[in-house]
Computed example of a mutant assay.
Amino acid sequence: MTSPKRSMPTEMRVLAEFEGVWRIAREIVPDRGPPAHFEGQGVWAPAAGGLDYAERGTLNMAGAAPMVAERRYFWGNDLSVYFDDGRFFHKVPAAGGETAHWCDPDQYHVRYDFGAWPRFDVIWRVVGPRKSYRMTSRFSRLEEP
């Protein structure tokens, strides 16, 4: 007996849907060594041509004191993501799915899963000569804009 094929959502996300405050729960699992956990918030706020994104939270790693971790990006209207210095990072697939970023000498593969919107997951697989880990970030909305 063959199980029915699960249909994937085909709804396309648009930038305005991300605006607001989101809870982030992140797990980082290296190929070797203990995992790390991040808990915090991400905020998408209006900016010229898109949304500024800023996240801040606490990173917990085995054998180390908890530390504040933060990052910033710019998201363009077409879901292109840029580092805070203006360099292109990657483009988010509007329906969810996979994309990648090469940062010599490391390869970053990412999958966006919007199937439980307004919750979503972002799963990174990073491989390089000194990096090798899987990072799963779960976003859930805290506040509308």
Rank of each mutant, 00 (worst) to 15 (best):
A95S: 14
R13C: 02
F88Q: 04
T99P: 09
G97V: 07
L15S: 07
P30T: 08
V110M: 12
L79T: 08
E17M: 08
T136I: 14
A54H: 15
P35Y: 05
A95D: 12
G57V: 11
P66C: 08
E39F: 08
R32S: 11
L79R: 09
Q41M: 10
A48D: 15
N60L: 10
Y53E: 13
W75S: 01
G115M: 07
D106I: 09
R130T: 14
V43T: 12
G49S: 02
M1C: 05
P30V: 06
P105D: 09
R87G: 05
V21C: 07
S7E: 15
D121T: 14
A65Y: 07
E39L: 11
D113F: 06
F89R: 02
S80R: 14
E70V: 00
L79Q: 09
A116K: 14
T2M: 07
P66F: 09
E144S: 11
P35T: 08
W117D: 04
G115R: 15
W75G: 00
A69C: 01
M1L: 09
A64R: 15
Q41K: 13
H37A: 08
S7F: 09
H101E: 07
G50K: 02
M12P: 01
V127L: 13
D121G: 07
E98Y: 01
E17P: 00
D52S: 12
E11M: 10
L51G: 04
G42Y: 11
D106H: 07
E11C: 04
A116W: 06
Q41P: 01
A47M: 10
G115C: 08
E17D: 13
R141F: 09
S80Y: 03
P35S: 11
L51D: 05
D84E: 15
D31H: 12
V127E: 15
M135R: 06
D104L: 12
A94K: 04
Y133R: 07
P35H: 10
H101P: 01
R71D: 09
R26Q: 05
H109I: 01
V110R: 03
R56A: 06
T10K: 13
R26G: 02
T58G: 02
H37V: 14
G40M: 09
Y133F: 15
A16G: 10
Y73D: 00
V21F: 03
G63K: 08
R87Y: 05
A65M: 14
F89E: 04
R13H: 04
I24K: 00
P35I: 04
R32Q: 13
L79N: 10
H37K: 11
G86A: 06
Y112V: 01
R32F: 12
E55Y: 11
Y112Q: 01
P46K: 11
A100D: 13
V43A: 10
